[in-house]
Simulated assay, not measured.
Amino acid sequence: MDTKSQATPMFYGHPVFSCSQCAAVIALQDELISKAFSGRDGRGYLMHSAVNVKMGKREDRPLLTGVHTVADVYCMGCNDRLGWYYHKASDQSQKYKEGKYLLEREKLVKENAWKLDE
């Protein structure tokens, strides 16, 4: 087993997004909902779930689609801010984001876990 999958063997062999700073696994690529989101520093991914993250404090934040109650999320490995978690959306049309993560593309590395023929 390679070193990247030692900490999270259940992700071994699956395409994942990892932290660009410390290579901690953050999410399975299968958890991706949309690439058409904006974060603080550029493009973002809306994700069903994330692992190896810790949350900051909840706050009401004005975003492009209205005010949302969010908490910043940080990598457990290196404490880099990766994006935020949507706790609550004030606008009815934005409720689908609740319980989801916005992860910034620039903070992630896409790892495909390709198997090469030997």
Score class of each variant (00 low, 15 high):
Cys75Phe: 08
Arg105Val: 08
His48Trp: 12
Arg40Ala: 12
Gln6Met: 14
Tyr86Ala: 02
Leu64Phe: 14
Glu111Met: 10
Phe11Thr: 07
Cys75Asn: 03
Asp60Gly: 12
Val16Thr: 14
Glu98Lys: 08
Tyr85Leu: 05
Lys57Gln: 05
Glu31Leu: 07
Thr65Gly: 05
Lys95Pro: 00
Ala113Arg: 13
Thr8Ile: 07
Asp80Asn: 11
Arg40Gly: 06
Lys35Glu: 00
Lys100Pro: 04
Met10His: 12
Tyr101Glu: 02
Ala113Cys: 01
Cys78Val: 12
Ala27Met: 05
Gln21Phe: 05
Cys19Gln: 05
Gln29Ile: 00
Arg61Val: 13
Leu63Thr: 07
Tyr45Ile: 03
Thr65Ala: 09
Val73Ala: 01
Arg105His: 00
Ile33Leu: 13
Lys115Ile: 11
Thr8Asn: 11
Val67Thr: 15
Asp80Met: 12
Leu64His: 12
Gly44Ser: 09
Gln94Thr: 04
Asn79Met: 07
Tyr45Phe: 15
His87Pro: 01
Gln6Ile: 13
Asp2Glu: 13
Ala50Leu: 10
Gly42Ile: 01
Leu102Thr: 00
Arg61Trp: 08
Ser38Cys: 11
Leu108Val: 06
His87Lys: 08
Tyr101Thr: 04
Gln94Phe: 01
Ala71Phe: 01
Met55Asp: 02
Gly99Glu: 10
Leu64Ile: 09
Leu28Val: 00
Leu116Ile: 14
Leu108Ser: 03
Ala27Tyr: 03
Arg58Glu: 14
His48Gln: 15
Arg58Gly: 06
Val16Leu: 09
Leu82Pro: 07
Cys78His: 08
Glu31Ile: 01
Asp30Met: 02
Val67Trp: 14
Thr8Asp: 10
Leu108His: 09
Ser18Val: 08
Ala71Gly: 02
Asp72Trp: 11
Val16Gln: 03
Tyr74Glu: 04
Ala27Leu: 00
Ile26Arg: 03
Ser20Met: 10
Gly42His: 11
Cys22Asn: 09
Asp41Gln: 11
Cys19Thr: 09
Arg40Phe: 13
Thr69Cys: 10
Asn52Ala: 11
Met1Arg: 03
Asp91Ser: 14
Ser18His: 06
Ile26Pro: 04
Cys22Trp: 14
Asp60Met: 15
Thr65Val: 10
Val25Asn: 07
